[in-house]
Design a protein around this nucleic acid. Structure first.
Lengths: 277, 277
DNA sequence: GTTCCGCATGAATCGATAG
DNA sequence: ACTATCGATTCATGCGGAA
């Protein structure tokens, strides 16, 4: 057993660096690109109007490098402009579909601790989109890897299963899951839902991450197995890559900001040494 | 004081019934229209392809009857078709903007207890969209009406104020954010976020789209005052209307299904008598 | 080793003021 | 008129040092 997983990092524009990566080589892409008009100090700040045109050439390359069984998770949220939500994210979904992507699902990241503030016409924004795209319908998904302890509500619910529930015939609702509820009795673990309820990591760490490591970890466990390849074309401080490393997956990271690139590079060496012990 | 709030209900197709309603007369529209290709038995099933074209004439009428200070809350979720999320909802947003609507915000209804089920390629769907549209940017919003108890952290935190807490301590990173903890002394309540975390209510088995009364109640409190007018053009079993009645608002309901219309009609009389006591 | 407690931080947004 | 910058507002979390 090797005990070392490859972690390739590149400095440069994702659009061009991606061209060096072979077709059908990546099992999972998890990324959080710079949102429009945000993070201006680090990334140049892509305007709302340019955003879709900026992203499409990159997503085209991502489609190429992804394996047919692979998955692309895109973490993004549109900002408010003139008192109104921008539409560039939903326009991007439509354009990516035309590009050949399958828009399989939209997970929600419900943030436990969202940004504070008060405005006369809106509340604090406590959620972000986690868009799941696939290349084919035969993508890998390892649901057992992310099962959660069953909640109290479920225990109560299952204790007093009504007769109609036990005998429920799927034709009533047409969704095909009705029959098997009583099979759940006695189980301790349940599958999660498409809402991920997590806090942002904000406190006194050296480098604040765009998203908490638990987020990429969750998707890495869900969509890959050990020794698979995980990619983040906007790696930032490398959260996705380190999550992959810890979970014994190989990883590829790209970033255009030299500071981030160097930072990740510095951290790679000690980790690899550590694994050799 | 009257003690009686008007509850107007109509049997018929929303598109045509709405023509009887005057311009700029409604303060809030809260509705959960039939989703595409679902509830075929009750609503005749609008297909995914027809959905946007079916809805736009209705939303045009809604724009007309809404007051300039009013709000339209649309509860909707796209269904899965051939293993992929349909795009009719996001296409609808884009078309409604062209129609003159302002897409102010997207609230999320995070369902506490979504129904159990298992599929090989997706998890249970635990959220729905609550799209907020407005006619103008000067809409009414009464945020104090829906405040929630402040988190437990505050109790400990505010017992002892450190020196930095008492003075404004401007942020070091230049994020422009500071704090003045002493502002919070004596504060018991906080403003909510744009994620509404509610249980689904299975009380109304007859109406195929279960819509817990707390949901319309929340928006009615947030966007209207007593004696204002609330409308639901797809009232179903009348959840929105009864919520409005309880909160002392007038209401208008429309439904094309005679069974629902009669059901709501039956319930109206006893309620009004009750208020006369 | 635990638990407690102080505290900096965060993909924000609006309205006023200035160029 | 139209854009750019700036100050004001706000809440819950996890880290890290102390008991």
């Amino acid at each position: 057993m090797n005990g070392l997983w490859i972690m390739d990092i590149y400095l440069g524009d994702a659009r061009f660096v991606l061209q060096k990566i072979g077709d059908n080589t990546v099992d999972l892409i998890v990324t959080s690109p710079p949102y429009a008009d945000q993070r201006k100090n680090t990334y140049g700040g892509i305007s709302v109007d340019e955003y879709v045109d900026w992203f499409l050439p990159i997503s085209k390359e991502l489609l190429r490098v992804l394996k047919p069984t692979g998955t692309f998770i895109l973490n993004i949220k549109e900002r408010v402009l003139n008192g109104e939500r921008s539409t560039y994210v939903i326009e991007l979904i439509l354009k990516m579909k035309k590009q050949g992507w399958i828009w399989t699902e939209e997970f929600i990241w419900h943030k436990k601790n969202c940004y504070p503030g008060k405005w006369p016409n809106r509340f604090r924004d406590a959620w972000e989109r986690l868009l799941q795209f696939n290349k084919t319908k035969q993508f890998n998904m390892y649901q057992e890897a992310v099962m959660v302890p069953i909640g109290d509500w479920a225990k109560k619910r299952l204790k007093k299963l009504s007769e109609t529930d036990k005998a429920r015939d799927s034709s009533k609702v047409g969704s095909g899951f009705g029959k098997n509820i009583s099979n759940w009795l006695g189980r301790e673990m349940a599958y999660p839902t498409n809402v991920v309820y997590l806090a942002t990591e904000c406190a006194n760490r050296k480098h604040s991450a765009a998203f908490p490591e638990e987020l990429p970890s969750w998707f890495i466990k869900l969509f890959t197995r050990e020794n698979d390849v995980v990619m983040d074309p906007f790696m930032g401080s490398g959260t996705t890559l380190f999550a992959a490393q810890k979970l014994r997956r190989n990883s590829i990271g790209i970033d255009i900001v030299e500071e981030y690139f160097e930072m990740v590079k510095q951290s790679v060496q000690p980790m690899q040494l550590c694994l050799f012990d």
